[in-house]
């Protein structure tokens, strides 16, 4: 089947094609799913290399699951997020958590380059966010990332984390409060002081 035709197919339909030996379906699934899987794993682990290992393992499990995939039972993305969540949890239990990147590690740029300064501020903000996320309890971090960065709905998160919807709401609310508290002392450093004063 042509690549353009496959682009309109659902994840589940592509997985069924893959299970019947369609290589184009495999390529389409890789291109479609890997950014989300890798992005989620990277946020959870704050380590690119380790996140790639987790994402690869999750995709590998998807390929192996393909022939037995039960149509209509679960969304492919939801299933993948759940696998990534479990893999990350296992790793975090097994190892000492890696130190988050410090602000000093951000690349230096010339002071007179406005665009570069804006990039530096953005990099600082992301680094601060990663540090703050890293300080959250595991379940709160997972729920917050799924809700506010991956854009999943609460029922989807409940399915991924295998908890109730109310528990998801509670986790994300607590996580947001903790995040706001952790980042509160850095408002000026992150360039939010002026914005807050103006709003």
């Amino acid at each position: 089947m042509a690549f353009d035709d496959l682009a309109d197919q659902s994840d589940e339909a592509l997985l069924q094609l893959y299970a019947r030996g369609d290589r184009a379906a495999a390529r389409t699934l890789v291109l479609r799913l890997s950014p989300r899987v890798l992005g989620y794993a990277t946020r959870l682990l704050a380590d690119r290399a380790e996140a790639e290992d987790v994402a690869q393992e999750a995709m590998l499990r998807l390929w192996r699951m393909a022939p037995e995939w039960r149509t209509g039972e679960a969304q492919v993305t939801t299933w993948l997020y759940r696998v990534v969540t479990n893999l990350v949890t296992d790793r975090q239990r097994a190892r000492q958590r890696r130190q988050a990147t410090t602000l000093d590690d951000a690349p230096e740029v010339a002071d007179d380059a406005p665009a570069a300064v804006a990039q530096l501020i953005e990099a600082d903000r992301m680094a601060a966010l990663d540090r703050a996320l890293d300080g959250l309890p595991d379940r709160q971090r997972q729920a917050l990332i799924l809700r506010h960065i991956e854009g999943m709905s609460n029922p989807e998160i409940a399915e991924i984390m295998q908890i109730g919807v109310e528990a998801v709401e509670s986790l994300t609310a607590r996580a947001k409060r903790a995040l706001a508290s952790a980042l509160g002392g850095q408002r000026e450093e992150l360039g939010y002081a002026d914005v807050e004063g103006g709003s």
């Binding site: 903000r125 966010l129 995040l179 508290s181 980042l183 002392g185 408002r187 709003s199």
Partner: peptide, 12 residues
């Protein structure tokens, strides 16, 4: 002293 909710939403 916590980050403004709107700023936090923007950051996320």
């Amino acid at each position: 002293g916590a980050m403004n909710p709107k700023d936090l939403d923007d950051l996320l």
